[in-house]
Nucleic acid binder design. Structure first.
Lengths: 350, 350
DNA sequence: CTGAAAGCGCTAACAA
DNA sequence: TTGTTAGCGCTTTCAG
């Protein structure tokens, strides 16, 4: 359980302590503490004296001592599933950015953790944990919750665990994509899914499929190709789709990265988007504007979701928020250039 | 300086403390401490008693108390420049993975920080800082060093600061790319650079250019297009390059992502890689194997560099390493399919 | 091999 | 408005 023998003899950096400041300012430690914590009941005179001493000594409070004394960790953990498809994605980066930004504005340390789902996560140096999706690591979430650690799950509606979550309405997202493609007149509509292990991947597919069925549109199995959010998987899937005897006239790729790769593959076959095949993505990744055709996509507010998650989590940690947080954010259609009606010509071309 | 008024009344989670364990095991606190720190001088009997109590109470040591008592932070900071080009790159993700992995094996917290170059970074909750490149944030590095914080700069040879660094020999990398292209017989060779603000970007270009000059190969200004590691910048640059009256027969893109986008643009123009134009990248991003043509590239050991940086940094923090660490890692040519000799036909085609 | 006791640097009643 | 004092939970001398 504990593998390392503790060694002594550590070079101690000699920082000024609160006591040094107090001595120099000729006030009590308490007064210094008050000043650095902006407690209002300090006389102007002492305030100044302390501030001068702080500046002179280049004093900064010892975070560990503060945390110990306060019984509170101004740090939150962000744990991210380590499997490549999700980790090398726009999703991951946006989440990191969003959480990082929110942490900064709230003066929280963000301790970042990549998990394989099995390692035990150090639940001790943080006041709460944000799980960036659950994928093969439900055990960890359960363990954290059970230990009393405030938790927040992102991108996942967790019904079976008594915890907080903020997610995107992915079923709605899939529906939006299908709806748009159908409204354009397509009847041969395929999808390259996200990782089906993720709720997002599964639900996007579910909403998509459901709308198609409702619209009485045939949706054969070979029109569903499983991807994992990576460009590589999208390439493989797109190639399969295009080599079908009866290829689709429209493809919904469950992430913009995958949609971009889909378009690339389509172009490589000598076909054009959207003239020959329409492609719609998911994310609203800024980089999807700059290709040959600007990508039509379903926007999901990742950055905002990430920011919200730390705000809510922090309020939970501080006890300001008692009830569970269950938020579901809506995705939104963003129409650009990569979709149009199915071309008549196309049928004779292939 | 301190903006938030400290608030009291925080809900304290009641975790078992070392005292609880001691009481239950009927030994002293010291003995418990010895057990959890694997100090050998504990009798088998007491060892067992303590372990049972630990298990029963689900005790885990309070990290903050440990850090305070030890005067040592088992946490390191990773600060990453926030500008999109670098942040949304393979480089960034590999670094995060590498540092994360090394931290995990060394039982270190990794506190992650995205910087705009101006904000002050919280230097207090970590025992050392890794700067993932220096770009517009030299001030921060200087401040950290001056405060006595152990620092490690990645991907940057810092001559003017008295600190540790591990970098790639980017000039050599540029040279390797140029050398290969020249050896293939190319004479019209262009490059899409990385962000020139980064040392890596500048030096890759420098080494590339220098070899070309040495080889008496003409290298006009319009054959140098500045990118910023993003696909978007590569697209713009590639389009310019291809619309030149005398377009290049080979292109060195300073990252694999950019090389992939370069290839995409080339294909969009109806040209083939490598038949019409050769493309060489930089990174050895695994995803560059799966395109229409497998990418020839210059491999840089990012993950290893990241891992090394935390190992060295940790040794510095622990006082095991006294002298400065100045390491320079070598890049390596990886030949795949995206480069060949210049086609004779091509000249008549364009 | 064990334990008492003195901190580590800070916060927060409580009294003044 | 200020200071005294008792912790926060752990490590580590030092004496047994």
């Amino acid at each position: 359980m504990y593998t390392k023998v503790y060694k002594t003899a550590v070079p101690k950096r000699n920082k000024a302590s609160i006591e040094d400041v107090a001595r120099r300012a000729r006030v009590s430690i308490t007064t210094v503490s008050r000043v650095i914590n902006n407690v209002p009941t300090v006389s102007k005179k002492n305030q100044t004296k302390v501030e001068e001493a702080v500046a002179f000594l280049k004093y900064t409070p010892d975070v560990n001592a503060q945390r110990l004394a306060r019984g509170l960790n101004n740090a939150i953990g962000l744990v991210m599933p380590g499997y490549p498809g999700i980790f090398y994605s726009f999703y991951a980066v946006e989440l990191i950015r969003g959480v990082g930004h929110a942490c900064e504005t709230q003066r929280l340390d963000m301790v970042f953790h990549i998990t394989n789902g099995y390692n035990q996560i150090n639940t001790n140096s943080v006041g709460g944990i944000i799980f960036a999706d659950i994928i093969e690591n439900k055990k960890q979430v359960e363990a954290a919750i059970e230990s009393g650690m405030p938790c927040m799950v992102i991108n996942n509606v967790v019904d079976d665990l008594d915890t907080n979550f903020i997610a995107i309405d992915n079923e709605e997202g899939g529906k939006v994509a299908a709806d748009y493609l159908v409204s354009l007149g397509h009847t041969r509509i395929a999808t390259i899914t996200g990782n089906i292990q993720t709720q997002a991947g599964a639900q996007r597919l579910e909403g998509f499929k459901r709308f198609l069925l409702k619209s009485k549109i045939e949706f054969p199995d070979e029109y569903v190709r499983e991807g994992d959010y990576s460009r590589r998987s999208a390439r493989i899937a797109a190639e399969k789709l295009l080599s079908l005897p009866k290829p689709p006239t429209a493809i919904f790729s469950a992430s913009d990265d995958m949609a971009l790769e889909t378009i690339t593959v389509i172009n490589e076959k000598g076909l054009k988007v959207p003239d020959d095949i329409s492609v719609i993505g998911f994310d609203d990744n800024p980089s999807s504007i700059y290709g040959l055709v600007a990508l039509t996509t379903v926007r999901q507010p990742l950055f905002e979701m990430a920011e919200m998650s730390v705000k809510y989590l922090n309020n939970i940690i501080l006890g300001k928020k008692k009830s569970l947080v269950h938020k579901i954010l809506s995705p939104q259609l963003v129409v650009r250039e990569s979709c149009s009606g199915p071309s008549k010509v196309r049928f004779s071309v292939i």
